[in-house]
């Protein structure tokens, strides 16, 4: 038993060493990408422009990042966490995929077996996603202009956001309809007075209303 414990500890520590290295390298690669674009196109966007875009995203994205790390790490295990955060699409893909695999293998997330199955599941999912996207992008790229510049199909591309977010909304709103009504009403009221407000600004009061509304309903025991 003690040998097994030692082996597990070693694997545990090794996973975190690899994970730390992979996170830092992924961060460098992530930031090298826009830098490479600037060098390739020989253009340098203004600091102010980048900052004004970032300021709209940082309060939400960076806060969510903190929450996500706390929320997902226990569910995904060590290797699964590092890999999921590098490859993304956690809520809509990696987490349900890992849970599905662990249920199938009848193992628990915080067991040694769970750690292994979760990592295998997320690694497989990441490889499949990356391959599907690479094949799809390379297959679509030559025809993309034909689709997007086609007068008949243009209305579809003009309505991409309602289609995408409508389909996403169905899942979330049907599961959590009680806490969905209030923030939607708040945002519609805001748009009545300020119709030109962009979605990236509107989501601040939307998220605030959703969280506050959920808290009040939870306090009143309307939701569990």
């Amino acid at each position: 038993m003690s040998i097994k414990n030692k082996a597990e500890k070693t694997y545990f520590d090794r996973v975190h060493s690899w994970g730390r290295i992979s996170s830092v390298t992924a961060l460098c690669v992530l930031l090298m990408f826009p830098l490479a674009i600037c060098i390739d196109l020989n253009v340098w966007p203004s600091f102010n422009g980048v900052m004004s875009g970032l300021l709209k995203l940082m309060p939400i994205y960076w806060t969510t990042s903190v929450l996500e790390v706390f929320l997902y790490t226990p569910m995904l295990g060590g290797g699964g966490t590092y890999l999921s955060f590098v490859t993304g699409n956690i809520t809509n893909l990696k987490l349900p995929c890992a849970i599905n695999a662990m249920e199938g293998a009848k193992v628990k997330a915080n067991s040694e077996e769970g750690e292994v199955i979760s990592t295998i599941s997320i690694a497989t999912s990441s490889i499949v996603t990356t391959l599907v996207m690479a094949v799809g992008v390379l297959a679509f790229a030559p025809f993309l202009e034909t689709f997007t510049e086609n007068e008949l199909l243009k209305p579809a591309f003009a309505q991409v956001l309602p289609a995408l977010f409508g389909a996403l909304a169905a899942g979330y709103f049907s599961k959590h309809w009680k806490i969905s009504i209030f923030p939607i009403l708040v945002m519609i009221v805001i748009l009545i007075f300020s119709p030109g407000m962009g979605a990236s600004t509107l989501l601040f009061p939307g998220i605030a209303a959703a969280v506050i509304g959920a808290f009040v309903m939870w306090k009143l025991k309307w939701v569990k």
Binding site: F165, G166, I179, M187, I190, A199, L202, L203, G206, A210
Partner: peptide
């Protein structure tokens, strides 16, 4: 829901 709702409301 807040994030998705912003696009739905728009």
């Amino acid at each position: 829901i807040g994030l998705i709702g912003a696009f739905v409301a728009r």
